[in-house]
């Protein structure tokens, strides 16, 4: 009688040894490439923005300048403290507008800031001819 040899099933397995390395490489890539915004002097939290329910538009970060105005009247433009008394706001905005022709100026302002401070900054923006403004808001639920 002929001897029938049973075919041995080959050991099929997907190699997973490198999965850990790949995942850690991904993790490292995101950790290295993530840029954190470091606010130097102060920060107006989103919870302090005025409320709005409609007409909210998204603004591209690359096309915007951010103006922080605190309740007490401190002004910060793109991380640098400015005042309305001199031409620092006009100079800063004109320089920014030269780099970005479609510049949007975002007001990150405390909702209880006296309008006077905001008005003074807006006047400087008019002088600098950077008149596209965005009043940042928080969504009213």
């Amino acid at each position: 009688m002929a001897k029938i040899m049973k075919k041995e099933a080959p050991d099929v397995s997907i190699p997973t040894t490198s999965t850990g390395d790949i995942a850690f490489l991904l993790l490292l890539f995101f950790m290295v490439s993530t840029v954190f915004v470091q606010e130097r002097v102060f920060w107006v939290q989103r919870e302090r923005f005025p409320f709005a329910s409609e007409n909210i538009e998204r603004i591209s970060r690359n096309e915007s300048a951010t103006i922080y105005i605190m309740k007490k009247g401190d002004i910060l433009i793109d991380d640098f403290p400015r005042t309305v008394e001199d031409n620092s706001i006009i100079n800063a905005m004109q320089a920014k507008a030269r780099d970005i022709p479609t510049l949007q100026v975002c007001f990150r302002t405390d909702r209880e800031t006296p309008y006077q401070t905001v008005r003074d900054v807006m006047m400087r923006l008019q002088d600098a001819d950077t008149r596209n403004v965005v009043f940042e808001v928080q969504r009213k639920l």
């Binding site: 603004i59 596209n132 009043f135 940042e136």
Partner: peptide, 8 residues
């Protein structure tokens, strides 16, 4: 960044 857009 999201808010109400206006032109001065």
């Amino acid at each position: 960044k999201e808010g109400v857009k206006v032109q001065l």
